[in-house]
Nucleic acid binder design. Structure first.
Lengths: 238, 238
DNA sequence: CGTAAAATTGATCTGTCTCAACGTGGGTGG
DNA sequence: CCACCCACGTTGAGACAGATCAATTTTACG
């Protein structure tokens, strides 16, 4: 039996789930799949016949350019769900790859249809999709307009808030199983410059990131440096 | 009575619409709204109680940073539709602003619900949302990984294909009512550099853009320069 | 026509990249 | 349990794509 805590907690940010809803989710989620770090469990060009929910660990969507440049277009954190309307298109336009050991619930079209008969679940799925779109737009703003320092600050604020909404932070720290290269490909900087900028964040006494562990020393300061407004994450509640 | 041609044509790329569907659309679209260039007809922070479809003209979503930097996060071209699930969230996270004189159909929640009772329309709306998401991801890749020359090439390829799918191109030219500044804020370059790069595209005999009119002299060459793969636009058909 | 917005061009500056070397820590096999 | 190894992180120096600043020209439009 897999642990749906993060997933359920995230959905409950958007709509109160009835015991029936919870039961339906549990039944359908069934046995979760486990994948090691670095596994592409959804592949660009393959049929769009499954929807994934990440139960634990980190994953990402990305695209490779022919010459090797890579852009990570989103991080999937515990509780995150792919768009339930994916079935409308024939094939996936991007791969999803685990960045750590992950636990993934896989839903078929029929299962999603069944779940969406519950207004609460249907509403929560819709919110989830819209928020993912808002996050994607924020990433575009990040990469398009912000300096390296602001960019990293913003990304760290966002990830911290998203993890907090599913209970995966302590007071002001969290696990962040990402290499500096994986951060670099998300914010569109070189790994070298990410390293230098993380140093600068440390020197500014805002953030300390080491061995996949993030400590935020001054969250208000970090938010100001980033120009971070958490409204788009709708973590507050219904 | 407003002209739904572009909108209908776009939906028909995704699902064959029955006469009943067409009739329902026409009835509901009713009188379109007209706005002059530079009008924000949907405002960040305002209640998400309407869905817009652009019938003619150009518009964009954007976000301003406090110090004036602006990122355009998407262009809305004739036939484009905002996500029909917008109602799931309380307020809009971005403004939509016309870039030319536009004609906009406005739908209420009830109208969308009625339309979505048709499986064909519901499917077409879902496709539309997913394609908009794919476009947003392409823009992130564009801004994150491509050089100025590739970036502009890619944007022009994309816009040209999108306009072509709604019949708004001639053999190899189209109207593009955008200033170089508006292009600059979409691809995250300075207006000066957009200008220089457009010159370079011209010198390369790929593209000639002048007085809001785009002529593509070598579409295959432009696609290669851009690394453009139109699959994500699903313009082909069902 | 006159005027303001948009496009064009040149000169200079800078944030970030690239290349290259070196440090470090955790896992593996002997 | 030690030694090696490899991925990851760190640091320095130099290069460059694109930004910025500042004219000047062209275009759109009342």
């Amino acid at each position: 039996m897999s642990d749906l805590t993060a997933f359920v907690r995230k959905l409950q940010c958007h709509a109160p789930l009835s015991p029936t809803d919870l039961h339906a989710l549990e039944e359908v989620a069934g046995a979760a799949h486990h994948f090691d770090s670095g596994t592409s469990f959804a592949k660009e060009g393959s049929p769009a016949d499954r929807v994934h929910a990440l139960l634990s660990g980190f994953a990402c969507r990305f695209k490779l350019l022919p010459d090797g440049r890579r852009q990570i277009t989103s991080y999937l954190l515990p509780g995150d769900l792919c768009d339930t309307r994916t079935f409308a298109l024939r094939y996936l336009d991007q791969s999803i790859c685990s960045l750590s050991r992950v636990e993934v619930a896989v839903f078929t079209r029929e299962q999603i249809q069944r779940l969406e008969q519950s207004p609460a679940l249907s509403h929560a799925f819709a919110c989830s999709s819209l928020i993912n779109q808002a996050i994607a737009r924020q990433w575009l703003i990040n990469v398009g307009q912000r300096t390296a320092f602001e960019r990293l600050s913003h990304l760290l604020c966002e990830v911290f808030e998203r993890l907090r909404s599913v209970g995966l932070t302590h007071e002001s720290s969290c696990e962040l199983p990402l290499t500096q290269t994986e951060i670099a490909d998300a914010v569109a900087l070189s790994a070298v410059h990410v390293n230098r900028t993380l140093m600068e964040l440390r020197r500014s006494r805002l953030v300390y990131f080491h061995t996949r562990h993030l400590e935020i020393h001054d969250l208000p300061g970090l938010k100001i440096a980033a120009g971070f407004d958490p409204a788009y994450l709708y973590c507050g509640g219904h």
